[in-house]
Every structure is written in C-alpha cells, then in structure tokens.
Simulated assay, not measured.
Amino acid sequence: MRITSNDAFQELKLKEQRNEALCLGCFKSIKVHDVIKVISENSEVPEAEVGDLGAVVIVHNNGETFEVECAQENGHTKWLGTFIKEQIKWVQSPTS
C-alpha cells in the first residue's frame, strides 16, 4: 500500500491494529538482528529512552515481544530488555 492520503494512513493504522502490518511506516516485520528505535517508554527497562537504537536479539510470541540490546559506543551494553511491538519501530541499519 502506498500512503497518498489521510484515508490510506488510517487504513494502514487499522491493519496494524489487526496485526496485518507489523511496523507502521516501514511495512516490515521485525526479526533477529534488526535495528530498532524505541518509540515509547518501557517501565520494565527504565534505562531505555525514547529515540535509543538497539538490536533485536530474540523474537518471542510470533513477533509480539522482542529482547533488545542497546550498546554504547565502547561496545558495552547500555541496556537489555523486553519490548512489545508497539514500543519499538524498525529502522534501517546505520551501516546499510
């Protein structure tokens, strides 16, 4: 689906709610090793901030939840935690 109008955008949002589209705006299901962006706070991972980038290390429950690791520039883990799909969004890898 190509988003060309507000109606098309609303239709896409409905598809996401029905789990027919897994990633609003990117049309891509999230899998292991994908880069994601945190798009909402997660009380279970208080170190994670909206806008942080992380890598998916495990996919749970057929793509409903994800273990995500965020690394610091020195390679050490900043945080590791479980997110639901509504809290993250797939982004293109910075090295792609």
Rank of each mutant, 00 (worst) to 15 (best):
W90M: 00
V68C: 02
P46A: 12
V56I: 09
T82I: 13
N62L: 03
F83L: 05
R2H: 13
T65A: 08
S29R: 14
W90E: 01
I30T: 14
S5G: 11
S29T: 12
V59C: 01
C23F: 02
H76C: 04
E69F: 09
E67I: 01
H76G: 07
N19V: 03
V35K: 06
A71Y: 08
S5L: 06
G54L: 11
E69G: 02
K85M: 11
G25H: 08
S29M: 10
K37I: 10
H60G: 03
Q17C: 01
S93F: 12
G75A: 05
L24I: 15
F66L: 05
G63V: 00
L80P: 00
K28H: 11
S29E: 11
E41A: 12
A55T: 06
K85D: 05
R2L: 12
N42S: 12
V56P: 03
N61L: 05
M1S: 08
V68L: 10
E64S: 09
N6Y: 11
R2V: 12
A55N: 10
E44K: 15
K31V: 14
V56Q: 04
F83P: 03
S96W: 12
V38A: 00
I88V: 11
G75T: 06
F27G: 12
L24S: 11
I58C: 09
G51C: 05
D7K: 07
H76I: 04
E11P: 03
S40Y: 04
E47K: 12
C26D: 12
V45I: 02
R18M: 15
V38K: 01
V32G: 04
A71E: 08
V91F: 04
F9N: 12
